[in-house]
Design a protein around this nucleic acid. Structure first.
Lengths: 337, 337
DNA sequence: ATGAAAGCGCTAACAG
DNA sequence: CTGTTAGCGCTTTCAT
């Protein structure tokens, strides 16, 4: 009942009151089978009574292993939004689930590569994490490639390029881009715009895929740079539409988030969708089914992606040099194209 | 160019090649003004050349300070969804932004209190974090209260109860609940249902607020338990509506996420909204403006909430015993009620 | 089965 | 301004 003894903060404290050595306590608490069952019971009991928690920092330092996986989000092109980007946050949620299940903790870091050249190396070599998941290549493809040469336990969410060296998980963006353009054209569009910054590799691949198809079909398509910060997006799209909406009749938005903003602006301008303007997104966020009209888009399986990333990372922690995982995108036809 | 020397892994290695002591290197790298500018330059230069990164684990252990804030999400009532819950994930995104800005790293942990009584204490006393942010009280109010008595640097997102001891940030849920019911009734509803589990305190308060008003206005309201896992939600709502939709004409959904699912089911059943059924949500997620019809809901300022949580936590790290922060909710009238 | 001892890599108090 | 010294709290040989 009374708790006036000085608190038991270290393994040494506990050892003293248990009448054994620190080594034995450490072994007992680690479930080491070498220690006598009776003394182990006693130590466990004492630990509970005194509400003892071993210091993880010390343990990690000594064992040179942290049980922590770093998750890093590079904000290369768009400084602000993106960590608040629904797609990435949903992916993060699934990653947290998967990692927790495997007994790892997750350390989250947001970085702006422009302000810190060394963002990835610094994190990896901080001694705080056993491996790293990079969410999005942003415009940092080359830096990630460099790191991959000397560091195995890294898996990246992003786009797969022919012959790349880092292990990546992601949808086949180019194929998805083709599907999107095909759909717009099938639905009757003749002059397309791609709404999104083509700096990030994933977006670039989506645009490239769309252009493959547009060129083949003899249809024009042009990229329109759009930023992802919540206030900018709407304004930029509005400006674009105000100036050019008569020149196009089909829009491929680089992500659902952009598509939502675009849809809102189109409604504000009373442009009927899909009659006068076809629109297609990318991601298939849960709410894509609930806009007015519901959004036609390219589906990515986020949950499968998260599962794949963690699976590959764990194998890499076991020194296996795994291949990349490219997931098939899927066209979901709803009401906007 | 050539890099065949053995790598410089520790401060001692660097000290040797710099011809100074480890202590000096440590001070130089920490920017300690006591060290000679010239020797500091030299050490920094050498560190760069040899690509040296100090081991954070060792530093943290020695300094008894980690520079890491723990963010923990208790999944008390609904095991699966919730970390993938849009509201919490958005809050998390903002927290990451705020913490990064203040120079802290963020350690994310998802726990299921039923499986681990000790979830909060274990995290706090792991030695890995300087303070903790709890996202959602779930059904763990009492445990959080206990911890608060002996641990200052903790701030919780959730509901404020009269006389509680832990520092909480969140909307005034009861007031929000009142606003919601008032709106439904003003819009003409006479028999209400509350869609959501009343176990979590935030939801309970929303329901209580709604009941305050319903009782005062002589209108019936009953809670309908709904789980938050993505597949369950839809089915449970469908079942409820199939059996009881004739008995009610106004639905207060405990969160926008539930409201979206509800709206979808209503559409599937061809129940006209808002003519035959009024619907109101809670949160005002960005896409609430984009459903068919756009969702009437109670707005919570997530960004202000995140800012408040971090601000309070930092003050608590400075030993200040801060008050809770209750944010005003705001009714946003759109198309569903 | 347990104890003693030697660090993991870094920082900070204390001298000079 | 810099070197020396003594740990932070834990794990793991190496003995016994």
């Amino acid at each position: 009942m009374s708790d006036l003894q000085k608190p038991v903060r270290t393994i040494a404290d506990l050892a003293k009151i248990a009448g054994v050595s620190a080594g034995t306590v450490s072994r007992a608490l680690a479930g080491n089978s070498l220690v006598n069952a009776k003394t182990r019971k006693k130590i466990e009991q004492l630990a509970r009574e005194h509400d003892f928690r071993p210091n993880q920092m010390a343990s990690k330092l000594r064992r040179q292993k942290t049980g922590v996986i770093g998750v890093i989000i590079p904000l290369g092109h768009d400084r602000h939004q993106q960590i608040s980007d629904t797609f990435f946050m949903t992916l993060l949620g699934h990653l947290a689930d998967e990692l927790t299940e495997k007994g790892y903790d997750l350390m989250l870091r947001r970085v702006i590569p422009q302000q810190d050249e060394d963002w990835l190396d610094r994190f990896i070599r901080s001694g705080m994490i056993d491996g790293v998941l990079v969410i999005g290549q942003s415009n940092q493809f080359d830096r990630i490639e460099e790191i991959a040469d000397g560091y195995l336990p890294m898996v990246v969410w992003g786009n797969h390029q022919e012959g790349q060296r880092h292990c990546v998980v992601g949808a086949d963006n180019r194929l998805g881009g083709r599907m999107a353009a095909e759909r717009l054209i099938t639905a009757g569009a003749k002059r397309l715009a791609f709404l999104g910054d083509t700096g990030p590799f994933e977006f670039a691949a989506r645009f490239a895929g769309a252009r493959d198809v547009a060129d083949r079909m003899g249809v024009g398509i042009e990229p329109v740079s759009v930023h992802l910060s919540p206030d900018q997006t709407g304004r930029e799209i509005a400006t674009f539409l105000a100036e050019r909406r008569d020149e196009i009749d089909g829009i491929f938005a680089a992500s659902d988030t952009i598509a939502f903003a675009c849809l809102r602006e189109l409604q504000r301008m009373n442009v009927p969708v899909p009659q006068q303007m076809k629109l297609i997104g990318f991601d298939d966020l849960p709410i894509a089914a609930q806009t007015i009209p519901p959004l036609t888009t390219i589906h990515q399986d986020i949950s499968a992606g998260a599962h794949g990333m963690v699976d590959l990372l764990l194998r890499r922690l076991d020194k296996e040099d795994t291949e990349s995982l490219v997931l098939p995108p899927r066209l979901v036809i709803r009401g906007t194209a």
